[in-house]
Design a protein around this nucleic acid. Structure first.
Lengths: 251, 251
DNA sequence: TCTGGTTAATTGGTCAAACCAATATTTCTG
DNA sequence: CAGAAATATTGGTTTGACCAATTAACCAGA
């Protein structure tokens, strides 16, 4: 019974594709305001609701932005390419962030434990290398390279578990977090101690795995996630505080 | 002139978020058909065009799929986004099966533990219902309904954890296993005791959660997976034996 | 002439009531 | 009982209208 049959083409899809084409080929540049809905609907030969459905599609992909009474404008950021549905959900459903962190605590804890039990010499060498890179990235690198090094480190742990799913999932979840939390990531820079704390936490995980102490590795990983979770919540609170302060100034 | 000003909240966005929430929480599961547009619009207190705009948003993200005259269905996109690449590999790389089972042991164990800690009365009622269905399906049902009931049961546990990731991931993993192992599933029928054993294991998980004993729930879930893992390996061995025997006959 | 506020036109947001077309369900017929 | 026809359901589309926010035009007062 599920949608196995072929789909009937929908008008709104055709309209959305047409508008997309205009944007991509440049006849509608970023910042441009597209014609009024009534006008555009007449020009395309469709009804206004159909046109609106198409516009909402583009809006949900972040390609256009509408303001009541103002008009509909082409966004400056082309190619949003947010194809992962979890990504957009994260921004609108804050509880998902908590769920993700809680899940990561379990996952990374287990990964560290297994890695300490099963890592081969090759795994340990690779882990040591990614750890060194990460440590250096924290000192000098920009956020991009730091994020990449972070993923590499956690993925090296995942691979050391010799369980393909662990590595894949832990990297995927970390990437998912980074993409939607990068805004608040540099909040950590306001806390001078944060960097050294994070570095010591990573070091604790690394040495516990290298010394093959599973329980210690798990504890270190969980401590690390707990710290991330706590400082993230704290940075969100302080961001909210700054916003109210700014709002107070404007009145 | 660009849209710097604050945005007026659109109804379609609120509706889309509401539907997203239902999907995340599990009240709308992948494969489910959502109510007719007219009905849903009335229930949400919005007009049909507004509801349609919201549905188009979700459809453009691939979370739902509509067929004229048929209905609108929740896709498996959320779960598939994690494991799509793994599906085909499962059949060719047998070690992945082991990894999957090991991962499930951790996941289901944690899920059972959290469910025992956090389940509300509603969760417990739903869990009891899915358990009863599963128990009945083991006696009379064919493989299809048994597999579906199995997914429902484990998903109910996942939902009782009140962690969106747990529910979707555990369902996705179980479905992935069933899809790639169904061939060997009826192997279990050759072991008469297996059915009663599985039933008692499910019962143990259920009662432990219902009685809110987290440690017992985790242990029961892990025991269950251990049994599945062991009997699966055994059935594979016997299947291999039969195959070599058959091959011997043909020469 | 310039400034400020008021008014009018524009434009996206929402709703209501239809009708069409594909599908699903029921009923009828052989 | 199986297959075909009739009916009901359901998404797809259109028309028309009204509201609310924005923008543009206007005009009175300095």
């Amino acid at each position: 019974m599920p949608p196995n049959k072929l789909q009937v083409p929908r008008i709104s899809d055709a309209v959305a594709a047409s508008l997309e084409k205009r944007i991509l080929e440049g006849s509608l540049k970023p910042g441009d305001r597209l014609p009024p809905e009534r006008e555009l609907a007449a020009e395309l030969g469709v009804s206004r609701p159909s046109l609106r459905e198409a516009i909402q599609k583009l809006a949900s992909r972040g390609m256009v932005q509408s303001r009541q009474g103002g008009g509909t404008y082409v966004t400056h950021q082309l190619e949003a390419s947010f194809f992962d549905p979890w990504q957009d959900m994260m921004s609108t459903h804050p509880t998902l962030r908590e769920d993700l962190l809680e899940f990561r605590r379990m996952l990374e804890g287990q990964a560290a434990e297994w890695a300490a039990e099963r890592a081969t010499e090759v795994d340990l060498a690779r882990l040591a290398q990614t750890f060194a890179t990460l440590d250096a990235a924290f000192d000098a690198g920009d956020l991009e390279t730091r994020a990449a090094a972070d993923i590499d480190f956690h993925q090296a742990i995942g691979e050391a578990t010799h369980n393909a799913l662990i590595g894949h999932l832990s990297a995927a979840l970390l990437r998912m977090m980074q993409d939607n939390i990068r805004l608040n990531l540099d909040e950590l820079k306001r806390v001078p101690a944060a960097i050294s704390l994070l570095k010591s936490q990573h070091a604790a995980i690394h040495t516990a795995i290298a010394e093959r102490r599973p329980a210690a590795a798990r504890a270190a990983a969980e401590t690390h996630i707990d710290f991330v979770r706590e400082s993230l919540a704290q940075s969100l609170r302080s961001a909210a505080r700054r916003e109210t302060a700014t709002r107070r100034l404007n009145t």
